[in-house]
């Protein structure tokens, strides 16, 4: 499992878990980001944050801090993301 915020642009992952207690995660679940849904990182903003994601037929931008508690399984044909910078 990998935190969604660590995926590189172009990578996709299948959602494993969210933190349903967080308001932002509740909003994302309403938008269809539920366990099993495939989510793709489209790009990062020019200054590095926020990040644009594609899922459930829409492009949604989130700050990395807001995507912090979403865990995904990276699709098998994608390279393993780099470990987070120290």
């Amino acid at each position: 499992m990998t935190p969604l915020a660590q995926l590189l642009p172009g990578q996709s992952g299948k959602v494993v878990s969210l933190n349903p207690e967080r308001v932002v995660d509740q909003r994302l679940m309403a938008l269809g980001l539920l366990p099993g849904m495939v989510v793709t990182v489209v790009r990062r903003a020019p200054l590095g944050d926020p990040v644009e994601f594609a899922f459930n037929g829409a492009e949604i931008c989130l700050r990395q801090s807001e995507a912090a508690d979403i865990w995904v399984d990276v699709a098998a044909d994608c390279p393993i993301p780099r470990p987070p910078k120290p």
Binding site: V23, V24, R27, L28, L31, P50, E52, A58, E59, I60, C61, L62, R63, E66
Partner: peptide, 8 residues
């Protein structure tokens, strides 16, 4: 605060 969830 409301979460910053921005649809393009």
């Amino acid at each position: 605060p409301a979460p910053f969830v921005l649809e393009l």
